[in-house]
């Protein structure tokens, strides 16, 4: 088991962050080596909280997280950054660096004492940029790139960390269809060619169904279901978790495809029309 959550609980403090009331309560799940695991669920189900816990931006209130069998709280930050790399939700606004400079930032945990990166750091960064197809953009400012190119540059930065677990938080949000397909293909390729273990956090059920080996469905900070996409993406379960009617079909690859029935439950319907 590469990473494991054992009965992990977390709550944002009631004061200070009043708009983030969601919590995780006694969540247990694991990620095996070489797997692509998807975390799905409604807004504020605790998806991003999970990635923040995994990178020790926040510490669990209860339970324990393990990385390679060792408790996470005993792992030093830089060492953790060499094991777990995060592609965060949304890129930084107003980022004045070039793509090459950004990707080299991923080398920081491998030698924070160095003023400039070593030749090996440069090689790893070039290789990471080649892997995501942004090598020829290396000299350009990140702000000049299209949305899809930016996302691939940020994924290259994460790869430059040479992580064993790659965490992608909403990697296709705000991206056109083509870039969504690109990101999905890239994830599959990294997984097949490098055996990269990937944790995908996404509200896009179909992306998750298409690329993931297993899915964790979060609802209200608890695991509503965990298992193969076919088992988790089940019509009545989704309807109860998301509070709306869905239709589940099969894709060409035999994966579940979730469609919205564009109907809200009748009680809500009544409430909406009364509001009007």
């Amino acid at each position: 088991m590469l990473a494991e959550f054992r009965r992990v609980s977390f709550a944002y403090p009631a004061t200070g962050r009043p708009k983030r009331p969601f919590t995780l309560s006694e969540l247990s799940f694991g990620i095996e080596r070489g797997e692509i695991v998807g975390v799905i669920g409604p807004n504020s189900a605790g998806k991003t909280t999970l990635t923040r816990l995994l990178t020790r931006v926040i510490e669990p209130a209860g339970g324990e997280i393990f990385l390679d069998g060792a408790p996470l709280r005993g792992i030093e930050r830089r060492q953790l950054a060499r094991c777990v790399a995060v592609v965060p939700q949304g890129a930084p606004a107003q980022f004045p660096f070039t793509v090459g400079e950004l990707v080299l930032m991923g080398r920081y945990p491998h030698g924070p004492g160095r003023y400039f990166e070593s030749p090996r750091d440069r090689d790893v960064a070039c290789e990471a940029m080649a892997a995501t197809g942004v090598l020829e953009l290396a000299e350009l400012p990140l702000d000049d790139l299209s949305g899809g190119e930016r996302q691939r540059a940020i994924i290259a930065k994460a790869l430059a960390q040479e992580p064993r677990l790659l965490v992608l938080d909403e990697p296709t949000a705000h991206l056109d269809l083509r870039y969504q397909a690109e990101v999905a293909a890239l994830m599959r390729r990294l997984n097949h060619e490098r055996g990269m273990t990937i944790l995908l956090v996404s509200h896009d059920l179909n992306l998750a169904a298409e690329v993931c080996d297993r899915l964790l469905l979060l609802a209200g900070g608890r695991a509503a279901a965990m298992g193969a996409p076919e088992a988790v993406l089940e019509q009545s379960l989704l309807a109860s978790v998301f509070g709306c009617e869905v239709i589940v079909d099969k894709s060409e690859a035999g994966r579940p495809v979730v469609r919205l029935a564009w109907r809200v439950p009748s009680s809500d319907d009544a409430r909406l029309s009364r509001g009007r």
């Binding site: 923040r52 990178t55 020790r56 931006v57 930050r77 830089r78 060492q79 953790l80 950054a81 060499r82 777990v84 790399a85 995060v86 965060p88 930084p92 980022f95 004045p96 660096f97 400079e101 930032m105 991923g106 920081y108 945990p109 924070p112 960390q161």
Partner: peptide, 14 residues
């Protein structure tokens, strides 16, 4: 330099 990524992303880089 890493702080330009945002504080959380910098923390996640060690």
């Amino acid at each position: 330099n890493l702080l330009a990524l945002g504080e959380e992303a910098a923390i996640q880089l060690g």
